[in-house]
């Protein structure tokens, strides 16, 4: 049973980690809690269903299922990146020098707007993922893992490694790190801050979209309010790992996923969400810089 719970927790955690990356990157650069990030994940899940539904209707999935899934993933990542960029331009950019409260509130506005936009355009009912994936899997050590879970784990790890390399090895990545450290200084050194911020939102939203599509495949249904809870949990993961730190977000996501699975099984399944919130409060109070975060001074 313990081993099964580890598998359950890892799958959950991988998804949290992917969403958490978006939070952490934006926070690292703008010191802004992008409340709307959870909604981008929700948009991604919807796009996954819409695009795969379209591909099925033109008979593409019958030709090659893996290819269809990859196309769905890529397309919905592109769309969500566009959404991420648009959100930044409309709701955050004009408020870049405003006090902290303002962008936080406009983020809540974006979140409410997107939820209702999706509800109005896609209906309030649950949307069901096309039933093309079977619940087959492997059994070992008395625990079962489906092929889909294996796919989610591998895909998340690949994306996280890719992101890490991008940040560490490329010029743009370097620019992002510089901006995160000191925005004014970076701009004095000739870094185009606006571009860096846009790219941060594009990458973060793309990863959230990937998480959304995978969740839609894994659970088989989405609705327009999945973004809120997922967003809060991913934020918890980001804070747990140390907000602003990319390996921290990954670690935080995995820990949170494991903790939820184990907490729900050994303590109480009714309080499953409370573990995340409780953990969040405890970390913020005892160790606000998180597990892998750097010490930051004033957070006002």
């Amino acid at each position: 049973m313990f081993f099964q719970q580890i598998i359950n927790g890892l799958t959950l955690g991988a998804v949290y980690a992917l969403i958490a990356l978006g939070y952490t990157m934006v926070y690292g650069i703008l010191q802004l809690i992008n409340f709307a990030h959870g909604e981008v994940y929700m948009l991604g899940a919807y796009l996954g269903i819409i695009i795969l539904g379209f591909l099925t209707s033109i008979g593409f999935t019958a030709i090659s299922l893996p290819l269809a899934i990859i196309i769905t993933l890529v397309l919905s990542m592109i769309f969500c990146s566009a959404y991420g960029m648009t959100i930044e331009k409309i709701a955050y950019k004009p408020l870049r020098n405003a006090p902290r409260l303002s962008p936080l509130i406009s983020a809540i506005g974006v979140s409410i707007f997107l939820q209702n936009f999706v509800m109005l355009s896609q209906g309030a009912t649950d949307r069901v993922f096309p039933p093309i994936l079977k619940a087959e899997g492997l059994t070992f050590l008395n625990a079962r893992i489906t092929y889909l879970q294996i796919f989610i784990l591998i895909a998340s790890v690949l994306m996280m490694v890719g992101l890490h390399l991008f940040i560490m090895k490329t010029k743009l990545g370097k620019a992002m790190r510089a901006t995160a450290q000191d925005r004014k200084m970076a701009s004095l050194l000739g870094i185009d801050i606006d571009q860096v911020i846009s790219i941060t939102f594009i990458i973060g939203s793309g990863l959230a979209a990937a998480a959304g599509v995978m969740v839609a495949m894994y659970y088989g249904l989405v609705n327009y309010f999945i973004g809120y809870v997922a967003g809060i949990k991913a934020f918890t993961a980001a804070v747990l790992g140390g907000i602003g730190s990319i390996p921290g977000a990954m670690l935080g996501g995995i820990i949170l996923g494991l903790m939820e699975a184990l907490g729900a099984s050994y303590i109480s399944s009714e309080y499953k969400d409370a573990f995340a919130f409780g953990l969040l409060i405890i970390i913020l109070i005892l160790k606000p810089e998180g597990l892998l975060g750097r010490q930051v001074g004033d957070r006002s």
Binding site: Y271, A274, G278, I281, D298, R299
Partner: peptide
Amino acid sequence: PALRLKGDYLAIVTLGFGEMTRL
């Protein structure tokens, strides 16, 4: 406990408190 925090960290802790109360 919230005194040690400022700005949006405080916001998140209070959010967590609100959700916990409802749970």
